[in-house]
């Protein structure tokens, strides 16, 4: 599935798993995605866990949208898209992706305490292992783009911009929700980050208009 040229029945359920490290802004990103889907007229459910998991642990947020959604949880092997804010977390959750689905992974490494303390090794073949699951692996320099957009903290909006090109939803809905969700002073910067994320898809995927 590429850009906005979806051939899929728009009313079928689409599952997007967002993964990363506690503190990376995963919950804000999934909130924006869910509200965009809602505004596009879909039924939406989103699930995440608070508490212990947020102290730098591995965090996921499940977003499901379609005509009618029952389960708030995505089933293993059925996610259409995995959006990972960190490389190791992409690999940790890849088994949720359907075969041939899309991976969008932020080119960022955060060592877990098991690695920094020397008891485990950070894998050096993450992208290759992701490709075993699907050919559609998109490595995004989210931090570099965010810094160029004006602030490191816009990295989640850069990634959402990239993601937006893979979903059959009008970009104006995204812009509207982002404008309402991020702090007022940062709206222009975040909208700029969103566009930079979108542009990157067209730079890397030839078939964009």
């Amino acid at each position: 599935m590429l850009c906005s040229q979806s051939t899929r029945d728009d009313l079928e359920t689409t599952d997007v798993l967002i993964a990363g490290v506690g503190g990376q802004g995963i919950l804000l990103a999934s909130e924006i995605l869910a509200r965009v889907c809602l505004r596009a007229g879909y039924d939406v459910k989103k699930s995440e866990v608070h508490g212990m998991a947020q102290r730098g642990g591995s965090v996921t947020s499940h977003v499901r949208f379609g005509k009618k959604i029952y389960s708030p949880l995505i089933e293993k092997g059925r996610a259409e898209i995995l959006l990972a804010f960190e490389k190791l977390e992409a690999l940790r959750w890849i088994y949720f992706l359907r075969s041939g689905g899309t991976v969008i992974v932020n080119d960022h490494r955060i060592d877990p305490i098991t690695v920094s303390s020397g008891s485990a090794t950070y894998p050096d073949d993450i992208i290759e292992r992701l490709r075993e699951r699907t050919a559609d692996v998109n490595l995004v320099d989210g931090i570099g783009i965010a810094i160029r957009a004006g602030d490191l903290r816009t990295v989640n909006v850069v990634l959402l911009g990239f993601l937006s090109e893979f979903l059959p939803i009008n970009a104006d809905l995204w812009r509207g929700v982002i404008g309402e969700t991020v702090p007022q002073k940062t709206v222009d910067m975040n909208l700029g980050a969103f566009e930079k994320g979108r542009e990157l898809v067209c730079l890397t995927k030839r078939s964009c208009p």
Binding site: V21, G22, M52, A53, Q54, R55, G56, G57, S58, E75, K76, G77, R78, L88, E89, L91, R92, W93, I94, Y95, P112, I113, T114, V115, A120, T121, Y122, P123
Partner: peptide, 16 residues
């Protein structure tokens, strides 16, 4: 048929 969880072989990321 769904994929087995491969993450057991990956470095754990416990909360700290």
């Amino acid at each position: 048929a769904y994929s087995e969880n491969p993450s057991s072989s990956l470095p754990a990321r416990p909360p700290v």
